[in-house]
Design a protein around this nucleic acid. Structure first.
Lengths: 349, 349
DNA sequence: ACGCGTTACTAACGCGAGTTAGTGATCAGC
DNA sequence: GCTGATCACTAACTCGCGTTAGTAACGCGT
């Protein structure tokens, strides 16, 4: 007896075995509401499908239905940022959760600037919508896609594009952290940014820092601000620069990863935390509470950041209206790297 | 004049505009080798396509060609592990790079055990192959898929399944780390695992630890081994337990994240690193060199782990033979958390 | 004028589903 | 006994593209 080359069963096979038409099979498989199929027939179809091991062909459904049930996630971060971004995985999982809840899957497209194009994902219908994480203002591709009306949600900066965006409330978070330091009596407060100021998140956190100073009537001093850049080493360098200029009694570092480098520089300079210098971070990565000392920081709701982005995109795809801008609240987590300002000591290097 | 409802152009539209048949368009779009199309015709088609803004419909191609050009990545880690896994993003990027090189995209399916099924990805042809990260032995779904001959690559444990697997050489890495400690004169060396021993990686690293002891003729002492579990807090608890039993002169912690918790416990016990106790970690996460003190650890090639998995899968999909087991080498990175054994001090709690 | 090979295409089928318009059978109502 | 409304389906078209088999036109040698 010749072994039939096993072909994957199609809905026609199921129909034949159940003694019905393909249409009926389709109705049963898709649990189509309003179709008048008696329980007995329904059962027959389901049994036949099970016995044959039938699984509808994804591409065929996509073609016929005109939807891919797939969300694309475009990551525009550079390699540095990715390695440094301790919360990326959590955000990703939030997105995946939202996608699943809406019946979608997630296609991942990591694409450092200048390293390829992603418009095809949408234009070829491989994806019903896109979440663009870390979009830059000079992204022409993105501008075109938005203009053409594709469902897109931005995660991060706003860009003045006509697409909904989600982000953490960086400004308020930074404001809260610095206000906390001021409340402890600090007046000379340094700031090390999380990234170059071309990044919106960096400028926003810096703005929050200034807000708090303004509020307390403390003059802004550019000497106290140094740029960090994603990785811990940049925090170390920034702190060295800062200490070369002046000695603050507290430093707001707009990223936990950058902060750990900064803390190392403080130790190397013989300064104790928080006795000599208080440090506040941003992000509340998992390791922050295990730093030496445990780091006071601003917690970011990473999971809901991804989840919210996913939900918004699903809504947009469904054609429902969506908020233009969603800001997620942060939360100050007070640990041991901050304390009341020390008795005045001779400042300056 | 009535505004035509803009329909996305199909290959038929391109064909009409270029004055050729759909077949010719298809040949041009796919750069089909061996087709005798004169340069002039070729140009006409390309121009027509550009002018119309034509983009082939992904699902239609998948259906016709019988391939989705998509790789699935199934993450079987629990939420804890994901948040703790600082190298996940890097691995992901390695995979994405390999996928792109092979003309594939990556579909992400995070699926903590007991939280859903992924067989459908393969059975519905939405995906041409699967990489399963962190597979557990009791995964029946996986067993079935492998039996049915789907292209699958395992990342992590081997499981005795008939599917190629990629992993870091955990055992050799741990062996090297512990041998290094022994070389420094340590004899009482503790071990805190990275995870419960149900996880292959944990048992392998423990085996490497024993290998090194055996080699040096040091008797294995179960009192010196404590289980950690992914997160830093577990390392803290494990170290407290260990110190409650005995005082080792060095500890091998099979995960940097767990190690930072362990180091905190040492500090709290008044012990100095490395003067009183040497510590070696595993993974070489980005922050390890900024710990206090900078951590000696075993570097994992995270990027190439993902990349290799991707390459293997692409090969398997193409039907080419592939190594059953690929082990990637690790590298010991010596920093400041390790030192020669201290002069003997009264041991025990 | 004829045969024979290239060259440059095209007609038409198939991929595997979703969906619309329709059809025959049954049944209630009068 | 006839009408009209349900019920339970099905035939046939559609989605957009890949691909095989085939053909018309042309050149070239004899």
């Amino acid at each position: 007896m010749v072994q039939q080359p096993r072909r994957r069963p199609t809905s026609a096979d199921v129909a034949a075995r159940a003694g019905v038409s393909r249409t009926t099979v389709s109705f049963v498989i898709n649990r189509r509401a309003g179709s008048q199929i008696p329980a007995e027939t329904w059962q027959r179809v389901e049994t036949a499908a099970r016995e044959l091991g039938y699984h509808p062909h994804g591409a065929a459904r996509q073609l016929a239905a005109g939807r891919s049930l797939t969300l694309g996630l475009v990551l525009r971060q550079s390699a540095d940022q990715v390695v440094a971004d301790a919360l990326l995985a959590e955000t990703l999982f939030g997105l995946a959760a939202a996608a699943r809840a809406g019946g979608y899957r997630v296609l991942l497209e990591p694409l450092a600037p200048g390293d390829g194009t992603y418009a095809e994902l949408l234009r070829s219908q491989r994806t019903d919508g896109l979440i663009v994480s870390g979009p830059r203002a000079d992204d022409d591709e993105l501008v075109d896609l938005v203009r053409d009306g594709f469902p897109i949600v931005l995660q991060g900066s706003r860009l003045g594009l006509d697409a909904p965006s989600v982000d953490v409330d960086n400004r308020a978070g930074a404001h809260g952290a610095v206000a906390f330091l001021i409340g402890l009596g600090h007046r000379r407060i340094g700031c090390i940014t999380n990234a170059p100021l071309a990044y919106t998140a960096a400028t926003e956190r810096l703005a929050g820092y200034r807000d708090a100073l303004d509020e307390a009537g403390i003059a802004f001093d550019a000497q106290l601000v140094v740029e960090g850049s994603f990785v811990a080493a940049s925090g170390h360098a920034a702190m060295v620069t800062l200490l070369g200029r002046t000695w603050p009694t507290a430093v707001f570092v707009a990223s936990d990863v950058v902060a750990i480098g900064a803390m190392r520089a403080l130790r190397e300079a013989g300064l104790r935390i928080p006795r000599d210098v208080s440090v506040v971070g941003f992000d509340d990565i998992a390791l922050a509470e295990h730093f030496d000392p445990p780091l006071t920081t601003v917690r970011i709701p990473a999971h809901s950041l991804g989840e919210t982005a996913g939900q918004l995109l699903v809504e947009r795809i469904a054609g429902r209206p969506v908020a233009a801008r969603t800001l997620l609240p942060t939360q100050l987590v007070i640990r041991d790297s901050t304390g009341a300002v020390a008795p005045r000591r001779s400042g300056g290097p």
